[in-house]
Design a protein around this nucleic acid. Sequence first.
DNA 1: ATAGCATGGTTGATATATCAACTACATTTG
DNA 2: CAAATGTAGTTGATATATCAACCATGCTAT
Lengths: 148, 148
Amino acid sequence: MHRETPAQTVLYTLEKAIKGYRRLCQQNIDQVMDNLTVDQGLALMVLSKHPALSQQELAELVFKDKASITRIIELLVQKSLLARAERSTDRRKSVLRLTDRGRQTLVQLSATIQLNQQTALQGLSEDELTQFDVTLRKIIANCTSPRP
Amino acid sequence: MHRETPAQTVLYTLEKAIKGYRRLCQQNIDQVMDNLTVDQGLALMVLSKHPALSQQELAELVFKDKASITRIIELLVQKSLLARAERSTDRRKSVLRLTDRGRQTLVQLSATIQLNQQTALQGLSEDELTQFDVTLRKIIANCTSPRP
DNA sequence: ATAGCATGGTTGATATATCAACTACATTTG
DNA sequence: CAAATGTAGTTGATATATCAACCATGCTAT
């Protein structure tokens, strides 16, 4: 029985970490909110920080496909947390705005969002986080630009 | 315009890294194989390394839900890459075995699997990888055990 | 101005994630 | 042994990811 090197397994570990984090987030959200997913919450949060985004712009900020964003937004609109309108200057684009209920939802959620981050990153020093971030960015760059 | 600290964004970055890696993997697989997903390829690989696994055991090894595994396996069986049989000692469990086509597929895939890893981790020293792995495991632990 | 191209968003198809309910079988326990 | 409980896998519902086709609108170039 030999131990495998990180190189052979980090990418599994990465996957496991993300899944664990998403599960944690969803569990914590469920405790304060009915019927809201992590991605929906994230979309709300980003939209409140950057008002009047188009769907395309939102998609880029949260690393999602435009098709996924269309569906996430559709659900938020159905729940009256979000209002979608045509942009007057370009009728292809939409303008996304939180409704009052959406803003209220975010207020109820804000503590949870912080808790999620803090829980996940508990016990990690600033240096460790910085180094972690650096490595992640290298991986992203490696995966993005095609190899020679 | 102020720069945000890693603590506020690493978890986004983590998500972005995983997505980039999965996209890279799928693109590379597509170049040597028709109609096979990353997860299907992963399942094949793990099954070939650990023969005669049950679905439950496979699920644990690849961090997937048993429902997801059921469906992934179903697709592999449909494509005749995998054979599923009842276990004689416990008829609830199945025995999963690669078919000849499945083994052949893996042979065609093995270079790609290596390439994916190498590409993603290009330029990362062993120390850096080790540290990265340590941090990931901390995050996993934080997300797994409920907070006090 | 119009033809061609580009862009924002929607939709359909398929794969996966997650939860819950369910079936079939196995184990435990009284 | 029968009842209760536990486990492996399946299935349904819903959300998301991805790709491709498509529509409507806007832009560019001749």
